[in-house]
Design a protein around this nucleic acid. Structure first.
Length: 692
DNA sequence: GTGAAGCACT
DNA sequence: CTCTGGGTGCTTCACC
């Protein structure tokens, strides 16, 4: 028997190398009969090789066509999977089962009901869980063994979805059966749309990894399987292709999806077995168990809820912006004397600096900067109209291209709403991030930008959007950490903190503080959080560096506790190599070990900022979990829609808004016990703009 | 496809 | 003398 295959010489080399180092303990499964094979790969010839020795070679090299041929060869030996409990200790292999009839389905469901815990994964038609359809589910509760249940396939019969849900729904819902998964929120959203609310959400490997190894570059399953298990997973690209030829999972041959999906569940289980003991014995146990894992379900619900958008408002804005941008473009090109692409920084730099003779302010890595700060400086230094026109053009282009035009197209047809993704491991500090679309950077600063917020509306009759903002949360966290008496006192007496600080620094009473004095105090207050330098402050306030330095010195003299906190935090980071937030979230700060002065300064800023920003993130996460529980306890009609770092947005019936606001205020201000009061500002209205 | 520049938010 | 605020995600251009 000879099976020729088109292999590159390099692949042949790999096969031979792999076959050579294939110890007998790497045999995947024990075949009932050995079928010696003679075959050739390219110009390499193999003779008398047992099937079971060649299978792992093909598998490791992802030679699916050859695997198919091999399976044909071994026809009649389908049942090569050792029955439970019979596998020998030397078998370290893969036993992946395709559940393609009712009997197998019921056997699986029965097995799942009997497990104290299992890993599961879903395959879908898309990357965004809302609006994607379920293609199949995979399960595993023992390393090396997994099951795949197709519910939607390109070819071949599948068991009707209703039957699958009937069988698998009970074990999935059962809170007594602990579930683990990789990025479980994704699967929870998918299954919720299929009518299943998964219970017993217990262990997310992605989140565990993020807490245990915050310095890792990736917490993806592929990376974890490689690093923790030494296993190179089938790349998704191999099933779906890439670019214009990309297909969806429901178009892939079910047997190949089975291999892929089972591998996901299998390795999720193996990784959970590795990480769980580390979580349970480590300092992050409570953070993981009491905050991050419960938050998975909160975010699942937020994503399913989505937020309504008034597309007509944005359509009007788009037209208005287009008109104004055309006008600006014409004026810019008139001034330049010829048409050019204003969006191109390279072309703009040529116009400004080569043709118009303006003096470059700052260099970028590749050329001369044309950013907003540069254009503002150019506007001041000459009467050329172009910088100012470009500034306005840029503002409008940003709003139109990033928000006004794309957002309406992202409304999910089935719900009529926007469903952003919130990423729990997105930010190294512990903050959430948002994407597809990012609803955490909707404009608010400029008048025209704010109008976009007006398009985010309460989507149900007689409802309002209710927003709850932590007031000065990072400064309160700072006050809590540094225990500076003056700062604590300011918050305890309910002062406007910037006015208060300005009054203390200038030695006047709060009612004698000028606008400028308050603005300067505010800039310094924020600067402390971000690790600002005299240079940065002087730029922010338009004062000299000497003045800025004097102001900062005065600040630290007035609040010596802050200086001690900053120095102590940096020293701790140097000693331990990492910093820690209120709830014990860690972040390594390797920059502090750098020989580069600039890098070390960055490390110092990172250390201080992470403690403050990360602790504020801990706080709002706790509040979200508490509020979610209260909402589910019953009697509360509000839905949580968005989180924007220090703000939560809810949709609430107008008649209940007062009571809901008070409940939310209580939960948010009581989320964690700080040594300063935590105040929450609540506002509501028909849209996000009115509720601010 | 990838990196850089620029900019929206907190 | 040089550098000079933490953390994200998205769009566009330019280049490979």
């Amino acid at each position: 028997m000879e099976h020729a295959a088109e292999l590159t010489p390099k692949q042949c080399e790999n096969v031979l190398a792999f076959a050579d180092q294939m110890p007998i303990t790497r045999q995947l499964v024990t075949l009932r009969r050995d079928v010696p094979l003679d075959f050739s790969l390219g110009n390499c010839r193999f003779t008398g090789v047992p099937v079971h020795a060649v299978r792992p070679i093909f598998k490791e090299l992802r030679l699916h066509r050859l695997m198919d041929q091999l399976n044909d060869l071994a026809a009649g030996e389908e049942d090569i999977i050792p029955a439970a409990g019979t596998e020998s200790a030397t078998v370290v292999g893969f036993a992946y089962h395709l559940v393609d009839n009712q009997e197998k389905l019921h056997a699986l469901a029965k097995a799942l009901r009997g497990q104290p815990s299992f890993a599961f994964d879903t395959e879908t038609t898309g990357l965004n869980p809302v609006g994607s359809d379920l293609v199949g589910l995979s399960f595993s509760w023992r390393a090396g063994e997994a099951w795949y249940v197709p519910v939607r396939a390109a070819s071949g019969d599948t068991i009707p979805l209703a039957r699958v849900m009937e069988a698998l729904g009970p074990p999935l819902r059962n809170p007594a059966v602990r579930k683990c998964g990789q990025n479980m929120k994704y699967d929870l959203v998918v299954l919720r749309q299929a009518g299943i609310e998964v219970g017993g959400v217990d262990f997310d490997t992605m989140i565990a990894s993020a807490l245990l190894s915050p310095g890792r570059s990736s917490h993806g399953l592929d990376a974890l399987a490689l690093d923790l298990c030494g296993h190179r997973k089938i790349p998704t690209r191999e099933l779906l292709g890439s670019g214009r030829n990309e297909i969806t999972m429901d178009q892939v041959d079910t047997r190949r999806v089975c291999e892929y999906a089972c591998e996901d569940a299998d390795f999720t289980w193996r990784i959970k077995e590795i990480l769980e003991p580390q979580i349970e014995s480590g300092t992050v146990r409570s953070l993981f168990r009491d905050t991050e894992m419960p938050l998975v379900e909160v975010l699942t619900e937020m994503e399913c809820n989505g937020i309504a958008l008034d597309a007509a408002i944005l359509a009007d804005m788009s037209e208005m912006l287009a008109g104004r941008m055309t006008e600006l473009a014409r004026q810019i090109e008139d001034a330049a004397g010829h048409p050019f692409n204003i969006d191109s920084t390279k072309q703009l730099a040529e116009v400004l600096f080569d043709e118009q003779g303006l003096k470059p302010v700052r260099r970028t890595k590749t050329g001369r900067s044309t950013d907003a700060a540069t254009l503002e400086a150019l506007r001041e230094q000459c009467d050329n109209p172009i910088p100012n026109l470009v500034l306005e053009y840029r503002e409008l282009a940003k709003l139109k291209g990033t928000y006004v035009d794309p957002l309406p197209g992202m409304i999910v047809a089935k719900t009529g709403r926007l469903h952003a993704s919130f990423h729990q491991t997105g930010a190294i500090t512990g903050r959430l991030s948002s994407s597809d679309p990012n609803l955490q950077n909707i404009p608010v600063r400029t008048e025209i930008g704010r109008r976009i917020r007006g398009a985010f509306v309460a989507g149900r009759p007689d409802h309002v959007l209710l927003t709850a903002d932590y007031s000065q949360i990072e400064l309160r966290v700072l006050a809590h950490f540094c225990q500076d008496r003056a700062l604590l006192e300011a918050f305890r007496t309910g002062q406007d903190i910037h006015t208060f600080v300005a009054a203390q620094i200038h030695g006047v009473t709060v009612d004698h503080v000028s606008r400028e004095q308050r603005g300067a105090a505010k800039a310094v207050n924020f600067g402390i959080i971000y690790g600002q330098t005299p240079f940065g402050l002087s730029k922010a306030l338009g004062i000299s560096q000497a003045e800025a330095k004097a102001f900062i010195d005065m600040y630290f003299m007035r609040y010596p506790g802050i200086r001690l906190f900053i120095d102590g935090t940096i020293a701790e980071a140097q000693r331990q190599g990492y910093v820690q937030t209120l709830l014990g979230r860690r972040r390594p700060v390797p920059e502090l070990g750098s020989r580069n002065l600039q890098q070390r300064a960055l490390g110092e800023r990172i250390a201080v900022n992470t403690v403050i920003q990360g602790s504020a993130a801990d706080l709002i996460k706790r509040a979200m979990v508490d509020i979610h529980r209260e909402l589910h306890a019953g009697g509360h009609p509000s839905r949580m829609l968005l989180q924007v770092h220090d703000e939560l947005v809810f949709e609430t019936p107008r008649e209940a808004v007062q009571a809901e606001a008070e409940m939310i205020r209580t939960r948010m201000s009581g989320a964690l016990p700080l040594d300063v009061p935590i105040t929450v500002d609540l506002n509501w209205g028909a849209n996000w703009l009115e509720s601010k």
